[in-house]
Each structure stands twice: as structure tokens, then as C-alpha cells.
Design a protein around this nucleic acid. Sequence first.
DNA 1: CCCATTGTTGACCGATTGTTTAGAAACCAC
DNA 2: GTGGTTTCTAAACAATCGGTCAACAATGGG
Lengths: 210, 210
Amino acid sequence: MARPLAFDPDEKLHQAMMLFWQRGYEATSLKDLVETLDINRFSLYNTFGDKQSLFLKVVERYEQKVFGHLLSSLEGPEQGRDSLLQYFGALLAGLNEQSGVRGCFLQNTLLDGGVRDPRVRVRIQQVFSRLRAALLHQVKVALQRGEIDGLLPSMTSSAAPTPTPAETRAEAVADYLLLQVQGFIALAGLGLMMQANNALLVLRQQLADD
Amino acid sequence: MARPLAFDPDEKLHQAMMLFWQRGYEATSLKDLVETLDINRFSLYNTFGDKQSLFLKVVERYEQKVFGHLLSSLEGPEQGRDSLLQYFGALLAGLNEQSGVRGCFLQNTLLDGGVRDPRVRVRIQQVFSRLRAALLHQVKVALQRGEIDGLLPSMTSSAAPTPTPAETRAEAVADYLLLQVQGFIALAGLGLMMQANNALLVLRQQLADD
DNA sequence: CCCATTGTTGACCGATTGTTTAGAAACCAC
DNA sequence: GTGGTTTCTAAACAATCGGTCAACAATGGG
């Protein structure tokens, strides 16, 4: 009943993400967006709203496509340690195959103080909460099965003066793994992939049987 | 012989750092700088050069004052594991006492694609190299003394099929610790200090005797 | 005191920022 | 085709960007 769009919005959203990813929010101008997305200035406003709204849509797309796919192993069936190992393997694989130095789009965005839109900030906080919950879920399973006892030598030992509650222990391990995740993508963002791969070797051994 | 400056350059540099720290490079305008530093636009140019040069000076000041002080325990005498524990303690103490969510100025800057000045980027790379070298130094000492064998269960076991060279092992451990550092300051930057403190408990136990 | 030297000031530059407007062009149901 | 609706295009908007200028103020050695 009316004129259809001359472009694929999702494709343009992807291109916008790549641009924001490697330049940051403030350093990416409307001119840059119009040129690389190859659509008119006003068409951009008409389909995505203003710059902040566009950025929010980009963040949501990233969460669905990239983050959601990566978390599939953690949010799937309760496989304990195996799902953890699978997740870190997929994470490092993704970081290794990045052409330029980028790291994680969401981490970069949140650490970049330039993005002040509260909608964006709370959205990303929610994503990290989702990651922590997924980690915690599989950690609980793995701890119950005794798969990752090597990670917490004294906490798991019954000789501890005050035995730590299982819930507290699981949260400590989950937060420890959350730190590993942030560490990996930070190193990747800093261009230190070799060091990241080295560190993965150590983590793998910690998670391995003995 | 001439008119003296009406302000303390180092103090202004500090104020500029705080501004860049929580807003990012691109999001901090000359107007912002002039207003919060409370000096005239041209005086700023006259003493620090243009915006990029000012930022570079800020980075160098941060390395000297903040980073240098933090690394003192690692670059001091060869205390092995003790210096490592001391460093992480000081790091977390610093992150904990940060009022707002900031993380590390250098990490934020490098992950923020907005800073494209190559002088700044290589400078920060050098700082992280310095950190890695300092970690590696103390790790070698600690490994030789057998202080941190709990960190690498199978790699240190003589039963390994192909025994890992000491140099490789030390580098793996150093990179692992470098990842912990980046993970801690990333979590702090994301506003997840509770999780960071939780993770520190696990790391402390890994480094502890048993 | 004088004067060379340096810091300070506010106005100003062209360029670019994000955003909006008015009108032409393209589509589909009828 | 035509009507009604939506996209597209080019131009322009006010505001702000980083950076510069000449004139004035302040200093201390002579």
C-alpha cells in the first residue's frame, strides 16, 4: 500500500554495529554512518530514530545475534563442567578470529564513558547479569558433581574451620569465571590475544580432572 | 623575567584526567575542560598544546602517579608470591575505593576506539608491557621457590608426558595473572565490584599454600 | 622606572555536529 | 491510471566542535 524500504534494516544495523564497535559511540558521526551504510540521512532517522535510539537497537541486535549464540552452551541442558569448557572454547575462538582489535562490543561500550543513555547502560548491565546467571547455573551443577574441585582447594576441603555454604561457594566460583570472561575479552580488546590464549591454557588445567 | 602561571599545571592535568576518565576522549569537549579546569581556552592551548597533546600528557601523568605507585611492589625486590599478593591487594583496594564507576583509565582509553592518536595507543601498550614484565619477573621467582605450585597442577607435575620448559611455564602463569588484572579492572569498570571481590577470594586461595 | 617577555582574556574562525524540513519519487490497492 | 501513503533526496537548521587571534595585564631584570 506504500513504498517499500530500499534496504534491509537488519543489514544496516549490522554495518552500524561494526562502525560503533571500532570507533566508539561519540567518535562515530552521522556522516560516517550515512556514508558507510549508504542510505540517506533522513532515511536513517525515519527507520531507526535518532543516534541514541539507533545505538540502542544495535545493542539489542548484538545481544540477540552474538551474545545469545555464544551463551547457548551455558543456557542449554545442565552439562556442568563440559558446558563451561565449551563456552570458553567458543569465546576464545570468536576472539581469535576477529580481524582487527575489537574485543567485546558491549564491554567496550560500557567502559566507554561516552555512552550516557541510561537505556543503553541498563540494557548492557542486564546482559552481563544474564551471563552471570548462566555461569552460576552450570557451576552449581559442576560443583555438585565434584567436577571442578580443583578450582577451590581449601574451600572444598572439609578441614576448613568454618565450612562455606554451597551457595556462597558456587557464587564465588561463578564470579571467578565471570572475571575470566571479562579478562579474556579485555585482553582481546587490548590486542593481547597471545597472552589470552596462554591464560586459557592455565584455566583449562584448573578445570581439568586430576 | 616574565609573568608566572596563575595555576598549577599538574593540578589541572589531574582534573583533566578525571574528566577524560569518566567521559572518554571524544565525549569530553574543550568547553567541558575549560569550565571544570577553570582556565581560559587559550591558556590551556598555551600550556598543554592541542587536545591530543593534552590527553597524551594526562596519560603519562597517570602512568607515573597511579600506575607507577601500584607497580612498586612488583618492581621492587624479588619477593615472589608475597609481592604478587601485595599487588593484587593494592589493586583491589584502589578499585574498591573508587567513588563512581571508573575502572582503569588506561584500559578504558584503549578499549574506547575514539582515541586514534598513535602516540597515545603505543604509550599505553608500553605500560601494559611493563606490567606483564613485572608480573613475569616475580612469577619466575615464585615458581623457582615452589610458592605457587597450586596454580598449575598438571604442568608442574613431573608425570607430564612432555615436561614444559620453565620459561614457557612462567610465561603462561604471568599471562594468566595479567588476565586476572584486566578482569578485575574490567569488572570494576562495569560496576561489578562485589563480583570482583568474590573472584579475588578464589585467586587468593589458588595462590595460598596448602 | 622601563621594557622585553609571558600569561590571560574574550571574541571569533570555518568546519562539523545531530536534527529537521519541504518536495519529488515510488509503491500498492483499487 | 488514480489516490493515498510512505520512502527518498537535497538543502538547510541551530548549535557546538576544536582551534586561533590581537589586545591587554602582569611580571621581574636592567
